[in-house]
Design a protein around this nucleic acid. Structure first.
Lengths: 245, 245
DNA sequence: GCTGTTCATTGATCTGGATTAATAATCCTG
DNA sequence: CAGGATTATTAATCCAGATCAATGAACAGC
């Protein structure tokens, strides 16, 4: 299973200093690619799930549905993300994942990955590193929901989406195709759809963005960052030692 | 640095199946205990931080302060928790940590831990496992803030605190000393202090809890769990293989 | 190209929770 | 044990954002 051009490789090589040999070991335990249609469920709430799935292309959302019918989106899933962490560490999944566009991922059984960690310890750290990024994204989400105003939340979300798309070559300097609907963004930001819509219009009116339904330009990036109090993440590459060192 | 009686050991042996030899390796890289007074800053926002600090006793909060003066608490830190993950993976800390009671932790330099991971790969997985728990707690926090009502949020928070205290032997079957002030809980739940106070009284009035300023009894645990739609976490122990297997 | 479905937009109403402020209880510390 | 500093409680006002409802635009499948 070749990994060439895979967005997760872009992330791992840039930030984790994995070399060609590492990537070969990783490629060896990938089983196959799977493709899903829009709206297909990738992970069912309450089910067991023991795979690491590296998204090659397409978009999805990880969410929790409450009895009241309200939905909270935990994470927007994009190319280069891993589905199946941290759920593989748990008995059953406490959330669901559904594709919001056609989506392809490469499957790697969790057990194979664990075995690889024992052979080549750097992969245990790769997992921790991915987890650290995940935790940092979650932390921002918490700040967003708890203490930012709706306009700040939206600004922050747009900056986050842009940064993550940029990392895997899916965005321009300031612009990108909006991969998520307003309903999805509203459920990520804890807002109602009509209110989110008004907030979008407010950002447009204040000339911070230019957008239509499917395309967005962060016209005034600096002001957006100030408004959202956005701090880009700066991960430190883990020193990859080899057994002898 | 002996680890006997350390609450983190309770967690690791119960869930990660670490054996005596593993614990000895871990103990070997611990440097010393440090004790802090209430209100002392443990991690400064924007600073570098390259230590894993295992909390032996006492309480703290991880939080972000916004320009507006609003504070969002990201995590309530209790005995058995690790301060310094995931911040050690980052260039600088994007949050602050401050003790809310006298607190003691054992320090382990991040570099030593990384080195240990290369000698004994199971420790890389220990870190991933801790990260998975952290991520799951964050995820619940997101659902809380985004889509639960204030009374549901509080019920969920109390259940979470209780479960975490129980895990390290700091709580009874349904009751515990409340280690955090209402101001802290309000800033965790994204509510104002007066409003949180009213919500507490509502839980009392509905006979779900009995409490005063420093002690709380979850009188009607079942109803609380239903109200909060609380699902306890069920982590799967990682299979600890040894190099030969 | 037509049609049903999904998604975006707009308007009117109403309430939950913020805000502000003042007081009471409690905890420390000298 | 007295006095100051926290922390908890209560009350009054007000507005942001939910809710409900309806229309318009865009799109996918036939």
């Amino acid at each position: 299973m070749p990994l060439t051009g895979h967005p997760i490789v872009t992330r791992l090589t840039r930030s984790m200093k994995l070399n060609a040999a590492d990537l070969k070991s990783l490629a060896a335990i990938f089983e196959r690619d799977l493709t899903f249609r829009k709206r297909e469920e990738l992970v069912v709430h309450g089910s067991e799930f023991r795979n690491l799935c590296f998204v090659k292309d397409g978009y999805a959302i990880r969410y929790r549905l409450l009895r009241s019918g309200k939905r909270q989106i935990l994470k927007l899933i994009m190319p280069g993300d891993v589905i199946g962490f941290p759920v593989s560490f748990f008995d059953r999944s406490s959330y669901a994942v559904v594709a919001t566009s056609e989506l392809t991922y490469a499957v790697c059984p969790f057990d194979s990955y664990i075995r690889l960690c024992y052979e080549q310890p750097q992969f245990g750290l790769v997992l921790s590193w991915l987890a650290a990024q995940e935790a940092a994204t979650y932390a921002e989400h918490i700040v967003n929901l708890g203490r930012r105003t709706p306009i700040e939340r939206l600004a922050h979300l747009l900056l986050e989406i842009h940064a993550r798309l940029l990392e895997v070559g899916r965005a321009g300097e300031t612009s990108f195709e909006l991969p998520f609907s307003q309903e999805v963004m509203a459920d990520a930001l804890g807002l109602s759809v009509p209110h989110l819509n008004r907030v979008i219009q407010r950002l447009r009116a204040e000339q911070l963005i230019t957008s239509n339904a499917r395309f967005i330009d962060l016209t005034d990036l600096t002001s957006l960052q100030r408004l959202a109090q956005y701090e880009p993440m700066a991960l430190v590459p883990i020193p990859v030692l080899k057994p002898g060192q």
